[in-house]
Design a protein around this nucleic acid. Sequence first.
DNA 1: TCCAATGTAAAACGATCATTTTACATTGGC
DNA 2: GCCAATGTAAAATGATCGTTTTACATTGGA
Lengths: 175, 175
Amino acid sequence: MDIDTNLLATAERLFDQDGFHATGMGRLVEESGLSSRTVYKHVGSKNALMARVLAARGDRFFAHADFTSTRALFDSVALWARREGARGCLFFRLRAETGGAVPEIEAAVAAYHAQLHARLAALVRQETGAADPTLTDQLLALFEGATTAATYRGPAVIEAAGACAVHLIERGRSS
Amino acid sequence: MDIDTNLLATAERLFDQDGFHATGMGRLVEESGLSSRTVYKHVGSKNALMARVLAARGDRFFAHADFTSTRALFDSVALWARREGARGCLFFRLRAETGGAVPEIEAAVAAYHAQLHARLAALVRQETGAADPTLTDQLLALFEGATTAATYRGPAVIEAAGACAVHLIERGRSS
DNA sequence: TCCAATGTAAAACGATCATTTTACATTGGC
DNA sequence: GCCAATGTAAAATGATCGTTTTACATTGGA
């Protein structure tokens, strides 16, 4: 595996499991099997690394998530949570850890939020035939809430939220 | 104002605005106008302080939130967000910052989640006449999601989620 | 009045951490 | 065959931070 890919994957795993502050660069050096010099030559800084981790995470998530229908979306999210564990949205968590003070991370989070909202808006348009900002916000809330609540109630919450979302969409279609 | 009350309130404000790690104890010493010796005599440690902040936060939130009806609940949450700002659930954020490694904080978060879930379950029972775990999870997801999404979409999301919740409850009542 | 509690002011401690530097080894392309 | 790039190993740097300690002032009640 490529060094950069290896570093990105290791960092994502550590940040996701233990958090940004709890994961020191020394830990990344150990687990990657590289020297600290090489690590820094590749990632630049911890902040830059985290921004790249978030970008990669977003790409991976949007590649996995199935936005062809509301049901497919929540099913794919439930599958993701079961495979990767439900520890809450990594974007939100890492943002909380840095208190909004790191511009690179704010940018990565904003990009993710923009894409998430746009995809949900498109899903609403596709399923109901018209744009509906309120319905989009409701799907967004269900999505975010399912992700968050699943951290302490388990992945079943995602299915419950999905059923709610499907019902909402069906209701929006007939209007 | 009492020293303890003052410290708790100042700490909650700082932790909420800037985060746990970004807020050093020196900052709390400055803003409280006390000496570090006195601060530590009162709060014990930063971890213990944070656990007490969370307990107080929970008390304050449940004293403010109106669980008499679904509509009243989301309206009161929207009002809270407008008054205090929407930076996401403090329990979730502080938990993310500590990576689950601080027992005192895990306990405070678990207590909050248990109470939140119990109150929502009771609300469902009261409004529909019967317990409904799935409906309770859906309300929970809408609540958590509204809180989270409001951080980047504004408090309007909370109203949209509230409308969705009210609709869900009405549908549950007629079944 | 006196003492014990409680406070201030400020330096010191000890640990952690991100990051850099020094010295040296390996290696692949011209 | 050589050199420039790229890697390792490990110590050093410099800053931050939670927490403690030292020395001293204030004060309220028995």
